[in-house]
Design a protein around this nucleic acid. Structure first.
Length: 560
RNA sequence: UGGGGUGUAGCCAAGCGGUAAGGCAACGGACUUUGACUCCGUCAUUCGUAGGUUCGAACCCUACCACCCCAGCCA
């Protein structure tokens, strides 16, 4: 039925799935699932998992379910359920009508647990958490439980009463009877049900006992006929238990668990605990703050979903712990923006230029390309008059070697307009430069330059008469520390937050034609970078996106 | 100290007994009305280390080393 050379072969997961297909071990459609716990927002690390889960299904013409793994009511909330769905859709994936909740299987899971008890494979253990800790053994000593040989009938009775709410939270657990001496601690009679009198975000107070991940997850997969359950490396040790549940509960289907390495990125934290702290301790303004590595944050920052997908494809899938450089993500974003983002001019730190030989009151319309990187990228008209703003650092009174922009007595091209020459520097009493007096060369009009001049530098500008004052924000990666995930639990982040991660220039101007209120299109600022409207904020002004800005080899040279 | 994993360039990563893909970064150069983009070129005689098997080893065997994960009634 299958031919090896027709099957996907991008990485080891394909190899394993192909084996199952070729051997006939799996004779149904490939079926995967993405099973987030609704206890936080999805981040770029989840994007990798989503792409592996949904992507693998797509590669094999199969299906991928979305399942809320909501088996711990004290950590979960509906707010996250909604956000997770929105983010997956934004990323470009769809689960059709296969949206499930683990909590919908609670009744079935309970029945499986009862069966296990009847088979003598599970027992109610009344050890308290502290007692359990004392009796769990260690590397060389097996664990112990005085309740291990409780009669089946008594276990059945106790488990029913656990469900009925007769006991307090934590009073007892249902444990799988496997092997107290196993070198794999996960097999030392793991708890599979605990008592927790908490209100579940969905099932309310219907249940006061909840299945543990190790028991619930294989059952969820089996119930949904998941052929391949893809998860991260830390669950490798749990696979024997996963298989034990599959083998000892009378499941309708047997799934196979395959583990891959989760994503780490430099200058970024990926742990939900730490992301939550960033939000709750107000280091950022919410889960969707553009500085956050959450999908919601990246969306607001102007990262295209396709760029994130391309990034994940580029980094591959393996089993080695690795940390991808932030630059690799930026590269994927730049690559996409270069082809899709329309260009615009903006001035973040204005310096006024008076073109003394340009007639007062005159205005010309100049033609500017919207996207020179693509054919038929469109054009727009921008006004030009006697007074314009340029970027302050596009002028150097005492130029360093190699500087190609405006210098006293020198010439520079105003992009899409004329070549100007700096004739005079006007300063205030403190010696601060107020404005520059320049003259333009009428023969150098963009599009029909008859001057024959070869000008090295080209800079951006804005007509002072029409430029729109804008609030602009520049973003960079959140942490100055390369591997902030190494930060000790509870440690203060303050010293590690990159002071440049958010910068708001005092006076910034943009082209008036930019309809920032209505467009979600990323714009690219001339030479200085990209910006995108911050769609979800109440402000209608653009966000400047320094981090995926143009590479600046001049700036780099300056630093050296 | 028990168990489970992983080691290929600065960072990812192919490779699965026939003589080290690709991407990111970096560095040269060409082009340029964005110091961007684009284009061309350079970048592992060697695959954690040491032995062994073989005509031939990153791939097989042995030993060692390093790093990651596991003793929640979290997922």
């Amino acid at each position: 039925m299958y031919k090896l050379d027709e099957l996907p072969a991008n990485h080891f997961i394909n190899t394993l799935i192909n084996e199952d297909l070729l051997s006939g071990k799996v004779d149904s459609k490939i079926h995967t699932r993405f099973p987030p716990e609704p206890n936080g927002y999805l981040h770029i690390g989840h994007a990798k998992a989503i792409i592996i889960d949904f992507g693998t299904a797509q590669e094999y013409n199969g299906l991928c379910n979305l399942r809320m793994d909501d088996t711990n009511p004290s950590k979960e909330d509906v707010e996250y359920v909604d956000a997770i769905q929105e983010d997956i859709h934004w990323l470009g994936f769809d689960w059709g009508d296969r949206f499930y909740y683990a909590s919908d299987y609670f009744e079935q899971m309970y029945a499986f647990a009862v069966t296990l008890i009847q088979k003598g494979l599970a027992y109610v253990c009344q050890l308290t958490a502290e007692e359990l800790k004392d009796m769990r053994g260690d590397l060389s000593r097996p664990a112990q439980s005085p309740y291990r040989d409780r009669p089946i009938a008594e276990n059945l009775d106790l488990f029913a009463r656990m469900r009925a709410g007769e006991f307090e939270s934590g009073a007892m657990t249902l444990r799988a009877k496997i092997d107290l001496a196993s070198p794999n601690f996960n097999m030392r009679d793991p708890a599979i049900y605990r008592i927790n009198h908490a209100t579940h975000h969905r099932s309310g107070d219907k249940w006061c006992i909840y299945p543990m991940y190790d028991f619930a997850h294989p059952l969820e997969d089996a119930i949904e006929h998941i052929t391949h359950s893809l998860c991260s490396l830390e669950f490798e040790d749990h696979r024997p238990l996963y298989d034990w549940v599959m083998d000892n509960c009378d499941v309708p289907f047997k799934s196979r668990q395959i583990e891959f390495a989760r994503l780490n990125i430099t200058h970024t934290v990926m742990s939900k605990r730490k992301l939550r702290r960033l939000v709750e301790e107000n280091y950022v303004n919410g889960w969707d703050d553009p500085r956050m590595p959450t999908l919601a944050g990246m969306r607001r920052r102007g990262y295209p979903a396709e760029a994130i997908r391309n990034f994940c494809a580029a980094i591959g899938v393996g089993k080695a712990n690795s940390t991808v450089e932030f630059a690799q993500l930026e590269s994927a974003v730049r690559e996409h923006l270069n082809l899709h983002a329309e260009r615009a001019m903006a001035i973040l730190d204005p310096l006024k230029i008076v073109i003394t030989n340009y007639p007062e009151g005159q205005t010309e319309l100049m033609t500017a390309e919207n996207n020179p990187a693509i054919e038929n990228g469109g054009e727009r008209q921008i006004s030009f008059s006697r007074e314009v703003y340029i970027e302050k650092n596009d002028f150097m009174e005492e130029p360093v070697k190699g500087f190609r922009r405006l210098i006293p007595g020198g010439e520079v091209r105003l992009k899409y307009a004329y070549v100007i020459q700096c004739d005079e520097i006007v300063k205030d009493a403190n010696g601060e430069i107020i404005e520059l007096h320049c003259s333009y060369d009428p023969m150098t009009r963009s599009g029909n330059d008859t001057s024959g001049k070869k000008i090295k530098g080209t800079i951006q500008w804005l007509d002072a008469a029409t430029a729109t004052r804008a609030e602009v924000r520049l973003y960079d990666h959140l942490f100055s520390k390369e591997n902030p995930d190494d930060t000790a639990e509870g440690e203060d982040f303050t010293d590690f937050i990159n002071p440049d991660s958010l910068f708001i220039p005092e006076t910034a101007y943009v082209e008036p034609a930019l309809n920032c209120a209505e467009t979600g299109t990323p714009y690219q600022f001339m030479r200085t970078g990209y910006f995108v409207k911050d769609k979800d904020s109440t402000k209608t002004l653009p966000v400047f996106n320094r981090i995926v800005g143009l590479k600046d080899s001049w700036g780099k040279k300056q630093q050296q």
